[in-house]
């Protein structure tokens, strides 16, 4: 057997084995480093973040279907989704996204079925296959 083929097969085997173990563990979300973001009075969320005790709000996207906002260890709001419910929400929002001009770039893009399906497909991949936890800590101090 050629050396390259052997390397490819071993690599594939290791990846599938690791994924099997990951699947067996219940596909926990892999935490990514928290992004720290200082916000000032010009920011849209400044008033809200400033109203919390610590003047900090953490937004977390867990691709297993949960988006949450927390502050001082308290839950402020949550959104639970599945790829299906997310796609339904996108479809419902579609008529409101257009600019009214059928020749506009945005409307042309939205008219492409591949582009329309892209957000739901990406969400489904990160929901079903590999899950991540992405957090942004907004600081208004």
């Amino acid at each position: 057997m050629r050396r390259e083929l052997k390397i490819v097969l071993i690599t594939l085997g290791v990846i599938i084995l690791l994924y099997g173990v990951y699947f067996l563990l219940g596909r926990p979300a892999i935490p990514l480093p928290t992004i720290q973001q200082k916000i000032g009075p010009g920011h849209q969320l400044y008033t809200l973040v400033k109203a919390t005790e610590s003047e900090q709000v953490k937004f977390s996207l867990n691709t297993n279907g949960k988006i949450e906002a927390t502050s001082d260890g308290k839950h402020l709001a949550e959104i639970d989704y599945t790829p299906e419910s997310l796609e339904n929400a996108i479809q419902l929002a579609e008529p409101f996204l257009g600019t009214g001009d059928p020749q506009s770039t945005l409307n042309k893009m939205l008219g492409n079925p591949l582009v329309r399906r892209l957000p739901a497909s990406v969400a489904a991949w990160f929901y079903h296959i590999v899950r991540f936890r992405l957090s942004v800590n907004m600081d208004a101090r």
């Binding site: 959104i79 299906e84 419910s85 339904n88």
Partner: peptide, 8 residues
């Protein structure tokens, strides 16, 4: 069904 929103 749309995503479920939970307010606290």
């Amino acid at each position: 069904t749309l995503p479920q929103i939970t307010l606290f």
